[in-house]
């Protein structure tokens, strides 16, 4: 059994998407507790990935492949997991604000957070403030990630935060903002909970915020 957990962890490390999914299925078929598969196999593997990335032993595309393998395993696990086991870290809703079509940074951040155990709901680009608020109401995420690359669309991030206040749900979600022109000062100014200068710091901030 522990050998298979080890294989899952190893498969994650090497981004073997199909292999990790198949091993997960095998364990489930053998009647292993899904929560155990998650903890001893998948999370153990992703912890190594996280450490290796931090030590510059792994590169972004490798981490993203690991995250994808994790995702493939979660597809098998999710239907049979216990409530609390479903997501180790929590749910993140992400969007590029209205008027902005840029998304490489947001995508990167989303994939990295997924690798860290978050369940990601990516709303895509050019999303209206009210749509983002509706999504927060519906999905009740722990984190909302907002992205903008243009100086002209940055204020929309503040608009979303205000709309969350008006809807009375501002204190239910932590807001992280990012994008090339965004600064720490700006994040504070608009009342965001954190500023992410890049995808990995964004992931660290997200993990800190859910602990707080």
């Amino acid at each position: 059994m522990s050998e298979k957990f080890g294989k899952i962890a190893d498969g994650l490390l090497h981004g073997k998407i199909d292999e990790v999914a198949a091993l997960t299925q095998e364990l489930l078929d053998e009647g292993v507790d899904p929560d155990e598969v998650l903890q001893k196999g998948l999370f153990a593997g992703m912890d190594v990935v996280g450490k290796k990335f931090k030590n510059c032993e792994m590169f972004i595309p490798e981490v993203l492949r690991s995250a994808k393998a994790m995702h493939a395993a979660m597809d098998k696990l999710r239907p049979v997991l216990s409530e609390e086991g479903g997501s180790r870290a929590g749910t993140v809703v992400m969007a590029t604000v209205q008027g902005d079509l840029h998304d490489i940074g947001k995508n990167l951040a989303g994939m990295m957070m997924e690798g860290a155990g978050f369940n990601i709901i990516d709303m895509g680009i050019d999303r209206k403030t009210e749509d983002i608020v509706d999504m927060v109401k519906e999905k009740k995420p722990q984190i909302l990630g907002l992205s903008a690359l243009l100086t002209t669309t940055m204020p929309k991030m503040g608009e979303v935060i205000n709309a969350l206040k008006e809807a009375g749900i501002r204190d239910q979600v932590k807001v992280i903002v990012g994008g090339a022109p965004v600064t720490d000062d700006f994040a504070r100014e608009i009342g965001a909970d954190a500023y992410a200068p890049n995808a990995s710091i964004g992931t660290e901030k997200a993990l800190e915020l859910i602990k707080a």
Binding site: C56, I60, S200
Partner: peptide, 8 residues
């Protein structure tokens, strides 16, 4: 290029 370590 995207620096695949730092993401810059």
């Amino acid at each position: 290029i995207l620096d695949m370590r730092r993401g810059i």
